[in-house]
Structure formats: structure tokens, C-alpha cells
């Protein structure tokens, strides 16, 4: 997949930035979070998809699209994590000043 990154690196970057933005917002967002049970099921789904990707069980173009999805999703999560952590750091630094 790495050898082919030249064809979709822009989308990977977009996923990363999207994640970063979403992570940045999430820290101060007041919306309802995803319930824990859902989170578990979603995690299981993610693991199942990763397992399917590594096992090469999805053939042809669907297999490639699955790989692409997982890579973009992974980068989205990384972006989210970095964004949230950074926002949290910024917020906690500015609090004493208030």
C-alpha cells in the first residue's frame, strides 16, 4: 500500500487534517458522546475489518477500498488524538490565566 501512496496521499492528508479538526473540536464540544456499548461494537467492527484486510479475504477492488478505508480511518484517529490532546493542552494552559 505504501508504494501506491503517490496516488492518494492527498486524501490521506485530508483524513489526517479532518481528524485533527474533529479532535480539536471534540474537547469542548457539548454534544452527546457515543454510548460505551456502541463504542465496543464499533471497536469489534474495526478489529474485524482489520483482520479481514490482513487475511486478504475481500477480493479485488473491494479489497483495495477496504485497505484504503482502514488507512484513512487510522490516520483520522491519529489526527483526532493529536487534535484532542493539543486542544486539551492549550485549554489547560490558558485556564490559570483566566
Amino acid at each position: 500500500m505504501a508504494a501506491l501512496a503517490t496516488f492518494f496521499w492527498g486524501w490521506l492528508l485530508a483524513a489526517l487534517l479532518l481528524g485533527f479538526g474533529m479532535g480539536w473540536i471534540a474537547v469542548v464540544h457539548r454534544a452527546q458522546g457515543v454510548p460505551k456499548l456502541w463504542m465496543r461494537w464499533l471497536a469489534v467492527l474495526a478489529v474485524a475489518l482489520v483482520a479481514a484486510s490482513f487475511a486478504h479475504v475481500v477480493p479485488g477492488r473491494f479489497g483495495y477500498w477496504l485497505d484504503l478505508l482502514l488507512v484513512m480511518f487510522a490516520l483520522y484517529l491519529v489526527g483526532c488524538a493529536v487534535g484532542s490532546w493539543l486542544r486539551d493542552w492549550v485549554v489547560s494552559r490558558s485556564k490559570p490565566a483566566n
Partner: peptide
């Protein structure tokens, strides 16, 4: 972990990007 429960809205544009 707490924040991650609020990351889901970005999944919709992510799906579009994908």
C-alpha cells in the same frame, strides 16, 4: 477515551473523502 466518544461526526466527511 472520553473525547473519542465525540469524534464520530467527522466520520461522515471521512466517508465522503474515502
Amino acid at each position: 477515551f472520553k473525547w473519542s466518544s465525540k469524534w464520530w461526526p467527522g466520520v461522515i466527511p471521512l466517508a465522503v473523502f474515502w
